[in-house]
């Protein structure tokens, strides 16, 4: 296998694993930029995966070939509503945001598995009949080398993830909404004084993180896992959280980090067949994302500065 062919087989595979991480990490960026820690990304992905699979299984006959797209949309809506639980607890009830996030993770898995047992009478659902398929982009895939690398064998969802990262970057840094969102996360009292509704902004941010987490989970379920069980989402949410921090709370940083983690994940699965990498023990590729995140936090790879008021409930009138 030549070098070009090797790259051509790695890139699409890496992007399959990266896309769900990108979606979810973008959700994490919204939530954390508004000052709400979201450890619950994992649970939001679980909810998304569950809803995506169940909707697909139930409505395949109705929507036919469009079912995966409708499914991920429905998963987004349901997960956004599910994220309301985290929002109410951590914004209105002033619960510890980390603890509330942990509870979200428990709750999502509990609900998902409970309903799976209830509706399918077994521990996991059936496989979906028609998941997302990899496609070649007409014309562009004919370009030598670049076409092979970037325009053949990709899933449409991977392109969507990359485009969305730029959209989120635009929203957060180039629109009034984004400015308000960031100000609420840095200094909620100053924002409040300027007439920004702190609670409303934070609710919107947490629900957006729910929608994007649900999108990530359902995309993972409909491209990689193809069914729902207790082991569908195991750690992808935490990895997305790592991408948020490794990407320094910046949408494009998160995009880069998520793509890198996707590479690490796909290499740990396919790497043994590749020259150069076949001598690297699999374990190093498996733990690389986590070790790198710790190093990034410790400041060895540039200082990662969190939004100032991250994790602190805003209590009106207190100083």
């Amino acid at each position: 296998m030549g070098f070009i062919d090797i790259i051509a087989s790695i890139i699409p595979a890496a992007m399959v694993y990266a896309a769900p991480l990108i979606f979810t990490a973008l959700g994490g960026v919204f939530s954390e930029r508004s000052g709400i820690i979201n450890i619950g990304l994992e649970g939001l992905m679980v909810m998304g995966a569950f809803v995506g699979i169940v909707f697909h299984l139930t409505f395949y006959d109705t929507f036919g070939a469009a079912t995966p797209w409708v499914s991920i949309f429905v998963a987004m809506i349901v997960s956004a509503l599910f994220a309301l639980v985290h929002a109410v607890a951590s914004i209105t009830f002033r619960a510890d945001q980390v603890v509330s996030g942990v509870a979200i993770n428990f709750l999502a898995l509990g609900i998902g598995l409970f309903l799976t047992k209830q509706w399918y009478d077994k521990g996991q659902t059936d496989m979906v009949a028609r998941p997302f398929y990899a496609t070649d982009i007409p014309l562009l895939s004919k370009i030598p080398i670049l076409g092979e690398w970037f325009f053949s064998g990709w899933y449409m969802t991977s392109y969507l993830a990359i485009i969305l990262a730029f959209v989120v970057w635009f929203v957060i840094f180039k629109t009034p909404f984004g400015l308000r969102l960031r100000s609420v996360g840095e200094h909620p009292m100053a924002a409040d004084t300027n007439g920004i509704k702190v609670y409303r902004m934070r609710y919107i941010a947490v629900m957006l993180s729910g929608a994007l987490g649900g999108l990530g989970g359902s995309v993972y379920a409909l491209t990689v896992a193809l069914n729902f069980s207790h082991s569908t989402i195991v750690g992808q949410g935490f990895m997305a959280l790592a991408a948020v921090i490794f990407g320094k709370w910046h949408p494009l940083g998160a995009l880069g980090a998520a793509i890198f983690f996707g590479f690490a994940q796909s290499l740990s699965i396919f790497g043994s067949g590749l020259p150069l990498l076949e001598d690297v023990p699999q374990i190093f590729l498996l733990i690389a994302p986590y070790v790198l995140t710790i190093l990034a936090l410790a400041g060895f790879i540039g200082r990662a500065e969190a939004p100032k008021s991250l994790g602190e409930p805003y209590i009106k009138g207190s100083r």
Binding site: A89, F93, V99, S100, A103, L109, G110
Partner: peptide
Amino acid sequence: VPTELVEIVIALIIFFVASSYI
């Protein structure tokens, strides 16, 4: 009753304790 009901109950207990403010 599916076993997982208890996971939901435990998650809710955590929420209620964490939301002790209310």
